[in-house]
Amino acid sequence: MRALFAGRRGGPPIAPGGGAIGGLIALVAAAMGFLAAAAAIAGLAAGEVAGRWSADLARVATVRVWTPEADGQGAREAAVTAALSVLAVTPGVAEARLIDEAAQRALLAPWLGAEADVSALPLPSLIDVRLEGAGPDVADVSRQLSAAAPGAEWDDHGEWRGPLIRAADRVRQAAAAGVALAAAALAAMVAVAAAATLWSGAGVVRTLRMIGAEDAFISRAFAGPFALRAALGAGAGALAAAALPFTLPQIGVETGLETGLAAGADLIVLAPLLVLSTALVAGLTALAATRAAAWLVLRRG
């Protein structure tokens, strides 16, 4: 495999080593490999977080029970009790629990302050519902709730999940675009470097032609070493990017700020695949770019 990439067949490389240009290609490939792998990791992390959040939201629902202020506390409690009774016999509902005033205050504390008098606000009573299996038939449970407590509303958090999923999709698309742009930038850089090397190596090209080398042979001779350098550089860059999550502070679930970038068992499995695939894509990209540049240069020469 190395012999193939080095453009040799049972002998030393036919094209000169590349010198500074070869080193430059490795450096650019390393930078592009880092960016592409970082974008891929970010895209995967976004998908992971959005998926987790969405799954969490899909396992819970909230019932809001509105009662007119004028009807008083008794009517409010009666409506809540009716709603809880419906939920208690609804298939797909594992548990339904009234969120008491203290818990409501805690939920609103970040916005209103811990000392706010929640009872003075026109808030609905909230019932936290844990779902099981595929959950209840939403239309059916909504109808039954309305019948038992006219001010009760079923909220399955679809309003939150939709934008979350769409946002995660956008992040994934942006990551894919980042990977594609990095590959395109690498291809352009390698093509320019290959063309420059072919021009500067006109003597080698002339010699190879004099002894009957086909253009395809010449382009292979130059493309191999470039592809090898691009693959090694991009692999090193991807390795650095894959190592990055392991150096980040581990932000846990308890903080409510999970990033999806935490280094876990998944990433340990994923990292070698990411490095290898980045190196492979970079190598093949460089191979194609060099051969395209060689084709253009040799046709003119």
Binding site: L208, M210, I211, G212
Partner: peptide, 26 residues
């Protein structure tokens, strides 16, 4: 073909240069 400036490949040894036509011909 032998030209005045020889056109040997500088990064190869004498033997590797002599072997080149065989490598080119596969």
């Amino acid at each position: 073909i032998v030209l005045q400036d020889c056109d040997l490949l500088d990064h190869m040894s004498v033997m590797e240069n002599i072997e080149l036509p065989h490598r080119v011909a596969g």
